[in-house]
């Protein structure tokens, strides 16, 4: 029996297919913040994360309207769409480079030295994370951003637990090297 995060509710798929307003609202309330946190962890930017999260849910509704969508887990499906949308965004950024991703962190300027140091550390961290492969970023976001267990992460990534563990080690090692390189 695959292990899903506690917030996941199997009856949600049926609710989505019914497409009634109350069901959609309930699905939205249950998952929006969770998907937002995942996207925010990956992209680091508040507004961008909000935009991508809304796109994920709009995509979900459009899929439901034409009788497509998840068969097993709605949360897994939403996180999967979010992962693809973030990857699409990174590809777009590669082809059309604008300002650096981290330049778009919140504009409020910190004044205290601790705040400045904290802000700088987050910038470095976000930069280092963005240098990893998509799968490595995905596994770190699920395990350390969302706090899912190895079993839950394995289910969401459709991998075996041992594979997730191996990927976790590679991701952490790569992150540490990037952090070392950014100092």
């Amino acid at each position: 029996m695959p292990s899903m995060p506690k917030s996941s509710n199997p009856s949600d798929i049926e609710s989505l297919r019914r497409f009634d307003q109350h069901a959609i609202a309930a699905i939205y309330d249950r998952y929006y913040l969770e998907v937002y946190r995942y996207v925010r962890y990956r992209v680091g930017d508040e507004m961008l994360a909000e935009d991508i999260t809304s796109e994920v849910f709009i995509g979900c509704l459009k899929a439901a309207q034409v009788h497509q969508g998840p068969n097993k887990s709605l949360l897994g499906w939403l996180i999967g769409i979010a992962n693809h949308k973030v990857a699409d965004y990174v590809r777009h950024l590669y082809r059309h480079p604008v300002d650096e991703l981290l330049e778009s962190l919140p504009a409020d300027i910190p004044t205290l030295p601790e705040e400045i140091e904290h802000r700088e550390r987050r910038r470095n961290l976000q930069w280092a994370l963005a240098q990893l492969t998509n799968d490595q970023q995905h596994v770190l976001a699920l395990l350390f951003g969302q706090g899912y267990s190895l079993e839950e992460t394995a289910t969401l990534m459709n991998k075996k637990i041992q594979a997730v563990k191996a990927l976790r080690i590679r991701a952490l090692a790569a992150l540490q090297r990037k952090l070392g390189g950014s100092k």
Binding site: R37, Y41, R121, R122, L129, F144, G147, L172, A173, Q176
Partner: peptide, 13 residues
Amino acid sequence: PLLEAAQAAWMLG
């Protein structure tokens, strides 16, 4: 190094 990276990964969340 893995645990230091893990602490950083948590901080990011």
